[in-house]
Amino acid sequence: MPAVKKKSRPTPPAARSAQSRGAPSLPARKSSPEALRDLLDAGRDLIESEAMYLDERRWDDWLALYTEKCEYWVPTWRMDGTLTTSHDEELSHIYYSNRAGLAERVSRLTSRWSPASSPVPRTCHIVANIRFIGAPSQDRMQLRSSWVTHALYIRQRQTYAFFGSAEYELASVSGKWLIARKKVVLKNDYIPSMIDVNCL
């Protein structure tokens, strides 16, 4: 087995200049490997909780992971194969600048008046490759993940796998980490019939 090279853990690059939303963050009080690991664990815990809540249809718990003013964005791909970069100038699959948009999704999923959501697909979210983007602070961090969601569209009796990557900006609010921004890159955008937040 190759030896684990402890020194190889990269120092996170400087935080990106385009810090979106919220007040400028304080730098981490200490950027020791232990402190970074604690932050990463906290971030990973939040991301995995989101996956679990969606799979278990704990919709209120899921919504409570987001800040009220959160940004939730699923950009489309352009016809030339590049990802759109401006949600105000280019089409998105989903774009919200508040949690209320997500809550509307939940109301439809649970309403029983939506033929597409009756029944709600059974899902299994797998998230992995969770890493920092830029340098985290004690109250703000950016993370990326790779994700796969397996979904059984019950009425169709068909199983689909949606997959891609995601970027998160997490904010510590009253000692609790919440999602202030999530950008979901849906890589298989040839969509069978429908897709909703529970399949991303």
Binding site: H87, D88, L91, H93, R105, P115, S193, M194, D196
Partner: peptide, 25 residues
């Protein structure tokens, strides 16, 4: 443009709040 997009995304496409209900019907 942003106004157009938000209205469009709200209703249409496989990820909208209305079109998927048509497609499944």
């Amino acid at each position: 443009r942003a106004l157009r997009l938000r209205e469009f995304e709200d209703f249409f496409n496989a990820s909208g709040l209305a079109t998927p209900d048509d497609s499944l019907m």
